[in-house]
Nucleic acid binder design. Structure first.
Lengths: 225, 225
DNA sequence: TAGATTGTTAATCGATTAACAATC
DNA sequence: TAGATTGTTAATCGATTAACAATC
């Protein structure tokens, strides 16, 4: 049975995919079991089985899944095999890094250009992708029917940029600014929130100190005195 | 009562914090209710109340929370008021962007240096933070008792770098490489996984197409024919 | 055949939400 | 006082995990 897909499942699929891709010929088999994947990624095996069952029916009892088939099935489900075009707004360090990063193609993402309001930023990057004036954003999005907008501006202009992207017909927003964006119902906002990650890291370290796991330079081998 | 804090709550706290900080004097009051925060961030008000109750007891019936007090309480809980030092491994575009980004200080993160195995990358960045040879990593981490390691290397050397960081006494890892890292039990790995985000974005767009919300350039105003 | 592995049903667990009592 | 708002207990919801039947 094909289960409806939950957001949690959706977020684990890229994990399975990247694991499957690391398996070279030295793995020694064309097939792999859900249990093997679960052990490698430290997940529950039933969870992996359910996740895989939700996107594939190529699993065979006693045999498992054919690795290549499974890779294709996951990539296809995730839409990595048809390219989505995107634009970036905010050509700061992060924006430029994303613009020039070659690796997104394999996830089906093609960033066409960045936009910035600072005239000094305009021009071509080394990888021949343009940084254009923000005034040209809407025209380009409509003309090329671009569906993904990436926001890498400072927090204070993020909402304004977001509104402009929505107006330009964008359907999904990848937001790197540490703010909550207000959008119409059928537009997806995916937050890549560094502040959130840092909160988790920082809290973990604080907890360690509180619980006495570490004391100010004390070596761990003598901490139990 | 102080509830134990869940990871979900922990991840919403930075959201509240950034919202509270956007409230200028034009907000018109020193106090704010959980309901107001919930509405602004499109969250359930009971959820916000519970989250806040888990880190604060300064809420007063009929009045709400004092904004400044709440900001300080959240920042303090998240550990933003005591600086954690970090190092980056991998001085590519992303690594360098993170190294030179000035904004992490306000989250209590101070990145001291980046490390790379490519001699051509070594030297000083514009903001006078050094890029050092990876051979010096362990020594520096131990000497300065550094607790956070940031991995921005290609996927294929991420695990090796991770092992080196663990060996160097790091306690938490912020991983930007799209791989699952194996670490000892008490080390935290926080994945900043772009592939995961892209999966969510890509799937959203695919769903839209499937459900017929959009048809190949058809204008949305005539889609219901 | 026997055993490994899949897929599914049922139980558990935890987070969210609803209802409500307490209180400034 | 009355009403707004907090904090808490109970109900709901959804995801994870356990148990097990099906099968190559």
């Amino acid at each position: 049975m094909i289960y409806p897909i939950s957001k949690q499942t959706l977020q684990r699929l890229p994990l399975y995919l990247s694991y499957l891709k690391t398996l070279g010929f030295e793995y020694g088999s064309e097939n792999i079991s859900a249990t093997t994947i679960a052990n490698a990624l430290r997940l529950n095996q039933v969870q992996v089985r359910k996740d895989l069952a939700s996107i594939s029916s190529s699993g065979k009892p006693k045999i498992g899944y054919n690795i290549q088939t499974l890779i294709v099935e996951i990539e296809s489900f995730l839409g990595y095999d048809n390219i989505n075009e995107a634009v970036i707004v905010g050509a700061g360090r992060l924006g430029t890094a994303l613009l020039t990063f070659q690796g997104f193609k394999e996830y089906g993402l093609d960033i066409l250009a960045a936009f910035d309001s600072n005239p000094e930023k305009l021009g071509m990057t080394a990888c021949s992708k343009p940084i254009l004036p923000v005034e040209e954003l809407k025209e380009m999005c409509l003309k090329f029917n671009i569906r993904i907008g990436i926001i890498t501006t400072p927090a204070k202009c993020a909402q304004q940029v977001c509104d402009l992207l929505v107006e330009s017909g964008i359907q999904a927003i990848w937001n790197f600014a540490p703010v909550h964006l207000i959008v119409p119902p059928n537009i997806l906002v995916q937050n890549e929130n560094m502040a959130t990650s840092l909160a988790v890291l920082s809290n973990h370290l604080t907890e360690r100190i509180k619980s006495g796991e570490e004391k100010n330079g004390t070596r761990s081998d003598i901490r139990e005195k």
